[in-house]
Write a protein that binds this DNA or RNA. Sequence first.
DNA 1: GATGAAATCCGAGTCAC
DNA 2: GTGACTCGGATTTCATC
Lengths: 150, 150
Amino acid sequence: MDRIDKNILRHLQADGRLTNAELAKAVNVSPATCHRRTQALFDNGHITAVHGKVNPASVNRGTLVMVGVVLDRSTPESFAAFEEAVSDTKELLDCHLVAGDFDYLLKIRVKDMTDFNTMHNKMLIALPGVRQIRTFFVLKEIKENAPLDF
Amino acid sequence: MDRIDKNILRHLQADGRLTNAELAKAVNVSPATCHRRTQALFDNGHITAVHGKVNPASVNRGTLVMVGVVLDRSTPESFAAFEEAVSDTKELLDCHLVAGDFDYLLKIRVKDMTDFNTMHNKMLIALPGVRQIRTFFVLKEIKENAPLDF
DNA sequence: GATGAAATCCGAGTCAC
DNA sequence: GTGACTCGGATTTCATC
């Protein structure tokens, strides 16, 4: 990964729809070279995917909620059971096992607070081995999924 | 937004590099129609962007940290000052104003713990009006930026 | 008012060098 | 790594329902 490759990464991160021709111009190499390098970046896993970013409000997911979870017991089985149960949740965007006051931090997108309340009652408190749930409603999204700055 | 539009959204979210021809086949309309509909979805803001997903480890951002922040005082000026100061941080991916035990929740990507420690000392504790910082190192990423399921 | 067929033009992908 | 060459898709126009 030299300077040119990093530049390709930066451009594709900013705009995944750039054509190979445009990309080649932007990083100052011939289209053929650019094509081979880009291919290699995908093949080597330096770019893992290209995703269209759907406006959450357009598909009834305008409300963002962060949730901290503490499990009853800290056994491998507890963690595995929780992770499996939570993976089925359609509204779940992020799930991270963390060190600190919580065991897990979740990021959830729902339509509105009513919708979250339904989820909370049906899903969250029904998860296996949960001792405590702390809810953080997002009042304002200052930054969301910012691109990597490298 | 009818059924076909939603289908286009779903496909572009899953793979932002789909050609118009492929997309048209996938949603069962002619390439011309598909092209016009996709254009409209962008113009109306239902798709806001298409981003290549860069492997964090490939650009020295392999370590993920979540941070909870409590401010000294809850005045509009405090919030504004904090938000402006934090926006300049290159390592910051997410910043959300939340309701609950914290004022802000941050998502930060750094190279390693040493790197985070440097950041912590230089940046986080230097932010204006910060009373408390709670750090959650991510031990395992169960789910990260999952697509919207609609 | 949106659709699909055709027509043109330009880029993707592959070759030799 | 570059330049050329071929094929297929992007994009527009137009007739149609």
